[in-house]
């Protein structure tokens, strides 16, 4: 590799980054200048996109949240905190935030526990490895539209498989996605099925990093499978569990796709998420200014939850 470099480098190097050779010959100051230019050339392309599609919209969105901007361009003037004042007393906004937190709460527990159970069982090394991995992880590869088509069909009150199965045990048919009592549960079931495979893989990777010697030592001391699970496996997985919890909660807060496609937020707004409310106010109601204000309130919620998570996670870390 080095020989090829020596042969070609003199021809190419000056053309691409003309400053570098000069910089090396010069003093520390010019060297620094050379590194500066090269550095900015490397991050330049990323920064252009970063500024255009992240910095500009986040600043613009903040500005919009203080205007009465609509899609048609009317009412673009500054309105002070009017949007925020309206949002704080908007029952639909609070409801959508509440639905989102409820979804996070009831989906996170099974998404962590089922993933953990799957990983521990697969990691026993029993036959059928590829089948277990494939079946648990495959749904994660599906687009939300496919997941929604599958589960709307599974939950169909008359023709769906779920009611056919529960019917075998004598249960009355349930209108899963049309009944306010069950709609969110249906969404959670579909979501767990869809994304648990991701957490499963993270746990599996972590399990395989636990040193084999720990188990061997425990086995010598006469610890059985259950004892090993409780005193070696679970403690070793603590950092992964913290990570999965953080990632999972942040991801679930942004829920929109499958809910929008399975129930459209219904029945009666019982499954409408915060992101869906932002979307609807903006693209159905065409109130861009108001929608931006709700976006920022939602953003604040995400930041507060993230900070709380990191505070808890790092305090846990200190204890160890």
């Amino acid at each position: 590799m080095t020989t090829t470099l020596t042969n070609h480098a003199p021809n190419h190097a000056p053309k691409k980054v003309a400053v570098t050779p000069t910089a090396r010959r010069g003093g520390p100051a010019s060297r620094k200048r050379g590194e500066n230019l090269t550095g900015w050339m490397f991050i330049g392309p990323f920064m252009i996109f970063f500024i255009l599609f992240l910095v500009v919209p986040i600043v613009w969105g903040l500005y919009l949240s203080f205007t009465g901007q609509t899609l048609t361009g009317r009412g673009g003037g500054l309105v002070g905190f009017a949007n925020y004042q309206e949002a704080l007393v908007d029952p639909d906004m609070w409801r959508s935030m509440g639905n989102t937190l409820w979804f996070v709460l009831i989906s996170t527990v099974p998404l962590v526990l089922i993933a953990l159970a799957m990983a521990v069982l697969v990691n026993l090394g029993l036959p059928g490895q590829w089948l277990w991995r494939l079946s648990y992880f495959m749904p994660y590869l599906l687009a939300s539209s496919v997941v929604s088509l599958f589960w709307v069909w599974m939950f169909n009150p008359q023709l769906g498989l779920i009611n056919a199965i529960t019917g075998l045990f004598g249960a009355e048919p349930i209108a899963w996605l049309q009944d306010p009592k069950y709609a969110m549960l249906g969404i959670v079931i579909a979501t767990v099925w869809w994304t648990v495979g991701f957490n499963f893989l993270l746990y599996l990777a972590a399990l395989q990093n636990i040193p084999e010697q720990q188990y061997e030592a425990a086995a010598l001391d006469g610890a059985g499978t259950w004892r090993q699970l409780v005193s070696i496996t679970i403690p070793n997985l603590a950092p992964t569990t913290v990570l999965i919890l953080i990632l999972q909660i942040l991801a679930s807060l942004k829920v929109f796709d499958q809910i929008y496609q399975m129930t459209a937020g219904g029945p009666g707004g019982t499954t409408r998420s915060a992101v869906q409310y932002i979307f609807e106010v903006g693209f159905t109601g065409y109130r861009f200014g108001y929608s931006s204000a709700i976006s920022y309130i939602f953003f604040a919620l995400v930041v507060i939850i993230s900070i709380a998570q990191f505070a808890v996670a790092s305090r846990k870390g200190l204890k160890k």
Binding site: F50, L52, F53, L54, V56, P57, I58, W60, G61, L64, L253, K254, F256, V275, I278, F279, G282, F283, F288, S291, S292, S295, Y296, F298, F299, V302, V303, S306
Partner: peptide
């Protein structure tokens, strides 16, 4: 700044991005 921006949910950018 770039690491900090990981916290920004892309969903809050949809309105200004659409405008852009």
């Amino acid at each position: 700044v770039i690491i900090g921006s990981i916290i920004i949910p892309p969903q809050v950018l949809i309105i200004p991005l659409f405008y852009q």
